[in-house]
Every structure is written in structure tokens, then in C-alpha cells.
Nucleic acid binder design. Sequence first.
DNA 1: CGCCTGACCGAAT
DNA 2: TATTCGGCCAGGC
Length: 104
Amino acid sequence: MNRAASTFAVRVLGAVRRIPAGRISTYGDIARLARNPRAARAVGTIMRLAKEPGLPYHRVVAAGGRIGGYGGSPQLKSSLLAAEGLQIRGRRIINFEQRRWRGR
DNA sequence: CGCCTGACCGAAT
DNA sequence: TATTCGGCCAGGC
């Protein structure tokens, strides 16, 4: 990977780390926070391959409050979010806009 | 360098 | 509400 890409990856993980418990952000939001607004899809790629442990990857959901992917277990993602107080119905987060974190 | 994949997005159907 | 589709971009080979 080239320098621009790795820098982007670092910024992505840095942004993910800042998402407060009980709040969520979207792949698109993270892409914007990492200063590459059209790279929402790449954010998923980076998180999927990320080696950094201890980051709240489960707090990054898809646009519109949909749960989105999470390795082989989107189920677990829902559980983790529910454990942080988020209300979930099916594959959607209730009151997603209110719980959305847009960076400081 | 080309080609394919996919934890995405938004608009259209 | 559910699919489909085109655009997008990093990673892997």
C-alpha cells in the first residue's frame, strides 16, 4: 500500500477510537472524518483487515442506521450496541440520528 | 499495471 | 419495504 492509503487507514482507526460508548458513526462519516469523503467502502475494507485490537469497530454502522457488516457476525455487533444502550429493531438502530456521533 | 473483491452509499425501480 | 445499479476506493494477487 502507498503512503496516502496508509495515512488514510491511520486516520480511519484514529476516528473510530474516538467514537464514544453509546454513540455510533457511519462508514461514510468515518470516511469524511478521515478526510476522504468518497471512501466509505474502503473504510469497511480497512476495518475488516485492521489488526489494531481494542477499538470500538461495532460503533461504525451503515448509512441510515442499518447495522451493516461485522466480520462473520453482525449479530454480535447488534448485541454489543444493545449492551451500550442503543435500541435496535431488526437491522436498524432506533433514533439513529440522535445517537449519531459526527466527530468533535 | 490490470483485475477482482467487498464491514459502503444514494438514487432509482 | 426490498432489490438493483453505478460509482467509489483500498487491499490483495
